[in-house]
């Protein structure tokens, strides 16, 4: 199991570059941070700063139409300004066709007495983008190890060597995706309709053991080489909090099948990233001159703390 670390680095740098490009493209006016659909008949506009109430409440300043037919202007019934004066909710007379992108023109935006000119922005539902944001959210922004502090036993146990770290991460991701999808399915279609959601812990942990056992049985026969490489980590998967935390998160929120898949995959990849980062540092630590009382776990904890501080920088970031 040998993966060139330079290739990995280049790959991750490329992914990050794409991310920044994508986020950069969305900005259409410097004063408007975000536009989105809300409910069936509303559009929410988020501004970078507070806007004047007199301007915001005047519905004649807004023009909205569906992108393919600019002649049909949609009828606005009310413009509601939030408490902090940064978000305006436009309510429409009829329900919006959210599959179509909408164009929104605002004339003479005034903020604190100053005019900021007119803005012309689009409002669209980006489902793929949303899925992607769920994935990145679980992988980096809410990384289960560094931002939610879960799965630490296995994290510290298997991050001594890069090869171990990658093996554990891959095994974990596979089992995670399998068991979470089964858990989501059972929860949505069996436990919830029959009001048996108090059994969630028993069912979810049972499903995890089952998937581990199934992967173990099948892999042992189908690919003994792979089993030799990854078999040892299978047992450790059950002892990892993340594997049970993801189904519980799925049960507590209303995600659909695709979003659940993305969340589970993101959680697994996030664990892999955390393990890889940590093992890279710990391989160096082996050679460093550390005070005797700090050797082994204590210094690993301090390093993990520094990583967590770094990951704190991602918090609050939204992609789409």
């Amino acid at each position: 199991m040998k993966i060139n670390s330079r290739t990995l680095f280049t790959l991750s740098a490329l992914v990050l570059l794409c991310l920044f490009l994508l986020t950069g493209c969305r900005q259409e006016h410097r004063f408007i941070k975000k536009t989105a659909f809300k409910d069936a008949n509303s559009i929410v506009i988020t501004f970078a700063g507070p806007v004047d109430e007199g301007w915001a409440k005047d519905i004649s300043k807004y023009t909205v139409y569906e992108k393919p037919d600019p002649d049909i202007k949609l009828k606005i019934t009310e413009a509601h300004l939030s408490q902090d004066k940064k978000t305006v909710t436009l309510r429409f007379k009829e329900n919006l066709n959210q599959d179509q992108p909408h164009m929104l023109a605002m004339s003479q935006i005034t903020s604190e007495g100053r005019s900021l000119g007119s803005a012309f922005v689009s409002v669209k539902k980006l489902y793929l983008g949303y899925l992607f944001s769920v994935l990145i959210g679980a992988m980096i922004i809410n990384n289960f190890v560094f931002a939610k502090y879960l799965g630490l036993c296995v994290f510290f146990g298997t991050s001594q060597k890069k090869s171990t770290a990658i093996g554990m991460g891959i095994t974990f991701t596979i089992v995670m995706v399998f068991s979470s999808m089964m858990a989501w399915f059972l929860y949505q279609f069996v436990l919830k309709p029959y009001r048996l959601d108090f059994l969630e812990i028993v069912v979810f942990i049972g499903l995890v053991s089952l998937s581990v056992q199934a992967v173990d049985t099948i892999l042992r026969k189908v690919n003994p080489m792979l089993f030799k490489a990854f078999g040892v980590y299978l047992v450790l998967v059950i002892a990892n909090c993340i594997i049970i935390a993801v189904p519980l998160t799925l049960a507590a929120n209303t995600y659909n099948a695709m979003e659940s898949l993305m969340l589970a995959f993101g959680a697994g990849m996030g664990f892999l990233i955390a393990l890889f980062l940590m093992s890279s540092v710990r391989e160096r630590l082996e050679l460093a001159n550390i005070p005797r009382s700090y050797r082994g776990l204590p210094i690993a904890f301090v390093v993990a703390g520094l990583f967590a501080l770094a990951f704190l920088g991602f918090s609050g970031m939204s992609i789409f």
């Binding site: 502090y149 005070p291 009382s293 776990l297 210094i299 904890f301 301090v302 967590a308 704190l312």
Partner: peptide, 21 residues
């Protein structure tokens, strides 16, 4: 801060080790 948990556990483990040594 939740992050300080890592440092706190690390420092306390080091302290236990130091006393033992």
């Amino acid at each position: 801060l939740p992050v300080a948990g890592f440092f706190c556990v690390g420092f306390m483990m080091a302290m236990f080790n130091y006393i033992e040594l």
